[in-house]
């Protein structure tokens, strides 16, 4: 019986590492955008590389986990759910990586008046991702805590909607800004809001899976 426990302990560690990677990438993203807002593009591109590396690592570790779950026929009952969770959370990471690449290519102009608000938008969206990671950890280890984390995700997602809307209203009310710049900035606001949206989707899934696991 001991070898079984050893093997699953390893897999447990792998799942934890995978979630760590997502969390790390999300925090790096937040940091990168802070540098971007402050105009430190060198540091921004350094962070961009880190995010890219983390994204690659998460991909391979996800595949590794999936293979092991199938090959060793573990958790037959929740295997499908766990796979869906892993893949969807990987999508969040992809979204983060894609957004940072768009930033580095398109270099959208963020007007000084909305800088603080933009910063808050990034803060709450990444807050949703952090809570998403907590939700997933709870799904594995502490099922009763799932609910609390999901409430937090929902809060952050709503907050990102509100802040985004506020910024959009502000810039579109201004007559002195070029429409192209307005729409350009709007696109990036939407990108960042999407991250929170995706995190919320995952929260909803975990909610259902957790109910299923309560037998």
């Amino acid at each position: 019986m001991i070898p079984i426990f050893k093997k699953t302990k390893q897999l447990e560690a792998k799942i934890d590492e995978f979630l760590d990677t997502i969390l790390q990438a999300a925090l790096e993203f937040k940091q990168a955008l802070k540098y971007y807002l402050n105009g430190d593009l060198n540091e921004f591109s350094e962070r961009e590389k880190v995010v890219d590396r983390l994204e690659g690592r998460a991909d391979s570790s996800r595949r590794d986990i999936e293979n092991q779950l199938y090959q060793e026929m573990l958790i037959p009952e929740s295997r499908g759910d766990v796979l869906a969770l892993l893949e969807n959370s990987d999508d969040v990471l992809n979204l983060i990586a894609d957004t940072i690449v768009e930033f580095s290519i398109e270099r959208p102009e963020i007007f000084p008046e909305v800088k603080d608000q933009f910063d808050s938008l990034v803060e709450v969206s990444i807050g949703a991702v952090e809570e998403m990671v907590c939700t997933m950890r709870s799904y594995f280890k502490n099922i009763t805590a799932v609910r609390d984390h999901i409430s937090k995700i929902m809060f952050f997602e709503k907050e990102s909607d509100k802040i985004g809307e506020k910024i959009k209203r502000y810039i579109f009310d201004r007559d002195d800004i070029d429409l192209a710049k307005k729409t350009h900035l709007r696109t990036f606001i939407t990108y960042i809001q999407n991250i929170a949206d995706k995190a919320e989707d995952i929260g909803d899934r975990v909610n259902i899976y957790a109910i299923k696991r309560m037998m």
């Binding site: 079984i4 426990f5 573990l74 958790i75 280890k141 037998m215």
Partner: peptide, 25 residues
């Protein structure tokens, strides 16, 4: 037994994979 197990699983913090092992055994 079902209610005892449910009560117990809600309270103890065991990893899904460990529950799987215990279930097997």
């Amino acid at each position: 037994l079902f209610n005892i197990l449910k009560f117990y699983l809600k309270r103890v913090k065991i990893h899904l994979l460990q529950i799987d092992n215990f279930t097997r055994i």
